[in-house]
Simulated assay, not measured.
Amino acid sequence: MSQKELLPGDLLDQNGYLMQSGYSKQLIKKYNRKKIKAKRFKIKEWDYYLVYNNDFAVALTLADNSYMGMVSATIIDFKTMIEVTKSKIIPFTFGRLKMPECSYDGEASYKSSHVAIDFYHEIGARRLRLNYANFMENKPLIVDLNLYDAPEDSMVIATPFEEDKHAFYYNQKIVGIKANGSVNFDGRTYEFNPNDQMLGILDWGRGVWTYDNTWYWSSAVGEIDNHIFGFNLGYGFGDTTAATENMLFYDGKGHKIEHVKFQIPLNSEHELDYMSTWKFSSSDLRFEAIFEPIIDRSALISLGILKSDQHQVFGYFTGKAKLDDGTVINFDKFLGFAEKVRNKW
Rank of each mutant, 00 (worst) to 15 (best):
V115A: 00
V115H: 00
V115M: 00
V115W: 00
A116N: 09
A116C: 07
A116Q: 10
A116S: 13
A116R: 06
I117C: 02
I117G: 01
I117Q: 02
I117H: 01
I117L: 07
I117F: 01
D118K: 10
D118Q: 06
D118H: 12
D118P: 00
D118W: 05
F119N: 03
F119D: 02
F119A: 04
Y120F: 11
Y120R: 12
Y120A: 06
Y120T: 11
Y120G: 07
H121Y: 07
H121L: 08
H121G: 06
H121M: 11
H121K: 12
H121I: 08
E122G: 15
E122L: 12
E122H: 06
E122R: 10
E122C: 08
E122T: 11
I123Q: 09
G124F: 01
G124M: 00
G124H: 01
G124I: 02
A125H: 03
A125Q: 09
R126N: 08
R126T: 10
R126A: 07
R127H: 15
R127S: 10
R127K: 14
L128S: 03
L128V: 02
L128P: 05
L128A: 03
L128W: 03
L128G: 04
L128N: 03
R129E: 13
R129Q: 13
R129W: 04
R129C: 10
L130I: 06
L130W: 00
L130Y: 02
N131D: 14
N131L: 11
N131Y: 04
Y132L: 04
Y132V: 02
Y132Q: 04
A133L: 14
A133V: 05
A133T: 10
A133S: 14
A133R: 14
A133P: 02
A133N: 14
N134R: 14
N134K: 15
F135N: 14
F135T: 13
E137A: 13
N138I: 06
K139L: 10
K139Y: 04
K139S: 13
K139T: 12
P140C: 09
P140W: 03
P140R: 11
P140T: 09
P140Y: 05
P140D: 15
L141C: 11
L141I: 07
L141F: 07
L141V: 08
L141T: 10
L141R: 08
I142G: 04
I142T: 13
I142H: 08
V143K: 06
V143I: 15
V143A: 08
D144V: 06
D144C: 07
D144S: 13
D144M: 07
